[in-house]
Write a protein that binds this DNA or RNA. Structure first.
Lengths: 190, 190
DNA sequence: ACCTGAACACCGTTCAAGT
DNA sequence: ACCTGAACACCGTTCAAGT
């Protein structure tokens, strides 16, 4: 299997690496072009501007996440699958903070590719929640709303932990994963 | 009462305005200086660099938020006070997205002023939660951890809503404030 | 102590031109 | 269709100098 990566794919790969190393400001089109072996403005032939390139990076990562989620939940009981997926959500955020902040950052460009990837990621999560409700691991109710509750908690716990606003005194000892478990436990006993 | 605003205070005010209008990239030291009536590099006499100025902006806002929280909760039953404060947290985020993202963004500078303001904001929230536990509006347990759970949910709901990752199909109709109420309701019946 | 003007290095973006 | 080199406007930061 020969990997024939197009220039466009290489630009996205290189930009991904630069992002994780030093955040969006480290993704200069000059360095992207240089690492991809093209000129510093060749990216403009594939992307409208820098933000459009970053949107492609975020979309690619969302698709990769979706594959991970599917693999993680495959063949497991719904309650356990959901728990693993939420913990993976948090772990990914803590290990790849720049990518996390990019994906859930503010976009002034409405990238169709990114919107599509985000929609598919959410759909998968909703179906997982629905399965957990059917199996009795989660209480009944609108699955969209239950999903939003769970994702909001996992997301907020990760984001606050990343910014150091989550009880760093060590007293509460509230790791983001612990909060996920707290919520799941309370929901299970309702 | 004559308002004798120092240059430093004026720089922070001007930077705050620019931030809310167009985000951190709109806060150019040149424009800050110009609006404050000084040269484009006068800010360097008051702040180490641009990030240090933004840290002062964030710290000032955290202190203002703290005052709002105290005023909101003053004289109300703990359960209601907590609910109002969490809703205010969400509303503030939705109405001032750039400020919200700044405060809970990533800092490479460890500003003592910002760290102090963040710590005090968290302490106030913990004491509110503790009062709600004492009055029976919230279940018992480590107040630091209960606070983290509540803040993580409010924070995540607001952040996901801002980035459009919260069920925008309209089916679940999950506004951030609704999620706050969902969690409070579930905690009340535990 | 606080401020200014010039200068430097860097970056996103555009443009005319090349194959 | 895809790429290049030069150029423009802009920005953070530094420096020598002024009061």
């Amino acid at each position: 299997m020969v990997a024939t990566t197009s220039t466009r794919e290489r630009l996205v790969e290189v930009a991904t690496g630069l992002l994780e190393e030093g955040g969006p400001s480290a993704v200069t089109l000059r360095e992207v072009g240089h690492r991809a072996g093209v000129s510093h403005n060749a990216p403009y032939k594939h992307f409208a501007d820098k933000e459009d390139l970053l949107a492609a990076v975020a979309a690619a990562q969302l698709r990769a996440n979706r594959a991970t989620v599917q693999h993680l939940s495959d063949g497991r009981p719904p309650g356990e699958a959901l728990r693993l997926v939420l913990h993976a959500y948090v772990s990914r955020a803590m290990e790849h903070p720049e990518m996390f902040r990019l994906i859930y950052g503010r976009w002034r460009t409405d990238s169709a590719e990114l919107g599509q990837a985000a929609h598919e990621a959410r759909s998968l999560l909703v179906s997982l929640v629905q399965a957990a409700q059917d199996s009795g691991d989660l209480p009944p109710g609108d699955p969209d709303r239950m999903t939003a509750l769970l994702q909001a908690l996992a997301h907020g716990a990760a984001d606050l932990a990343l910014s150091g606003h989550l009880a760093k005194d060590g007293k509460g000892h509230a790791e983001p994963g612990d909060l996920v478990d707290d919520l799941l436990a309370r929901l299970a006993t309702t």
